[in-house]
C-alpha cells in the first residue's frame, strides 16, 4: 500500500493550485524515494516536474511502485476542503481504484476523508538530462511573478538576457515596449530579497509570457524562483520547497523563423 502524511498539508494545496491550470490530468508516481509527477501541458510546450522526497513527509510508506492517475481539477476540488493548517494523509491500496485524502486539524478535533477516483492516463515520460546551464538567476519569487505579470500587459513574449551583473526582461507589443532590469543584489541582512546571478556565458532567449505567468502560480511555495538558461534550450524555472522537494517547470524557447 501507499500511505504518506504531510504535516504541512498546505504545501500540497499550493502545489496543486500551481499546476492545475497548466495540466489537465497526470500520473503521480510513488516509490520508496518519494512522490513525483512529470507532465506536459496539452500543447506540449512546457513540462512540469514535481518531486516530494519521502523524508519530507512525516510518515511515508510505499510497498511497491505505483502510478496514480488523477484529474487535477478534481484533486484541487478535494484539497480545497482542507484547511491551510491541516495535516494531509494520502492513502491507496495496491491496485486500488481510489486514493483517500485524510485531513486532520492541528488539535485533531476534526478529521475528514475524501476519496478520489483514480484514472488510467497514458502519458509520455520524457528524459530530462541534468544539464549544466549557461546562466542561473535566483530572484525573489514575488518579483519574478510581478515581472511576468507586468510585461504581459504589453506583449506576448519576453526576451530574458542574463549578463554577469544583471538580468533583463524585455517585451514588445502594439502599444509600445517594456524592459525590466534586476541587478545582482546579495543583501546578507535580507536573504529573502536577494537576487543572485551565476553565469558561465551571457545568454539571451525568448519565451511565451503566458506560460511563465502560469509557472508563477507556484510563488507561494518558495521565497525564490530559480531560472536556469542555456542557449537554444528550454528555460528551467524552479521553486524549492524547503525540506520537502521542488516544483520545476521547463518551457521551450521561441525561435526566429
Amino acid at each position: 500500500m501507499f500511505e504518506a502524511r504531510l504535516a504541512q498539508g498546505a504545501l500540497l494545496k499550493k502545489v496543486v493550485e500551481a499546476i492545475k491550470d497548466l495540466i489537465e490530468d497526470a500520473n503521480f508516481d510513488c516509490n520508496s524515494s518519494g512522490f513525483s509527477l512529470q507532465a506536459m501541458d496539452s500543447s506540449h510546450v512546457s513540462l512540469v516536474a514535481l518531486s516530494l522526497r519521502a523524508d519530507g513527509f512525516e510518515h511515508y510508506r510505499c510497498d511497491r511502485n505505483v502510478s496514480m492517475g488523477m484529474k487535477l481539477a478534481s484533486l484541487s476540488k478535494i484539497l480545497k476542503c482542507a484547511n491551510g493548517d491541516d495535516a494531509i494523509t494520502m492513502k491507496s491500496e495496491d491496485n486500488g481504484d481510489t486514493i483517500t485524502f485524510m485531513f486532520e486539524s492541528p488539535e485533531q478535533e476534526r478529521l475528514s476523508e475524501f476519496d478520489l477516483k483514480l484514472m488510467d492516463i497514458d502519458s509520455e515520460h520524457l528524459g530530462i538530462p541534468d544539464n549544466e546551464y549557461d546562466a542561473t538567476v535566483k530572484l525573489p519569487a514575488a518579483e519574478f511573478q510581478r515581472i511576468v505579470k507586468d510585461l504581459s500587459t504589453i506583449g506576448d513574449t519576453v526576451e530574458i538576457s542574463v549578463t554577469k551583473d544583471a538580468v533583463k526582461f524585455g517585451t514588445t507589443g502594439d502599444i509600445g515596449n517594456a524592459n525590466i532590469m534586476c541587478r545582482q543584489n546579495k543583501a546578507a541582512d535580507k536573504p529573502d530579497e536577494s537576487t543572485e546571478i551565476d553565469i558561465n556565458e551571457a545568454v539571451s532567449l525568448t519565451f511565451a509570457l503566458r506560460y511563465l505567468n502560469s509557472f508563477a502560480k507556484a510563488t507561494p511555495l518558495s521565497t525564490h524562483a530559480v531560472l536556469k538558461l542555456s542557449k537554444e534550450l528550454p528555460i528551467l524555472v524552479e521553486y524549492h520547497i524547503p525540506e520537502v522537494g521542488r516544483l520545476a517547470f521547463y518551457l521551450a524557447p521561441k525561435i526566429e523563423d
Binding site: 510546450v45 520524457l126 528524459g127 525568448t206
Partner: peptide
C-alpha cells in the same frame, strides 16, 4: 516572427 518549439523535441521519449 517567432515560432514556438515543442518541449518534447528537446527531451525526447525515455
Amino acid at each position: 516572427s517567432s515560432r514556438q518549439r515543442d518541449i518534447s523535441s528537446f527531451f525526447g521519449g525515455a
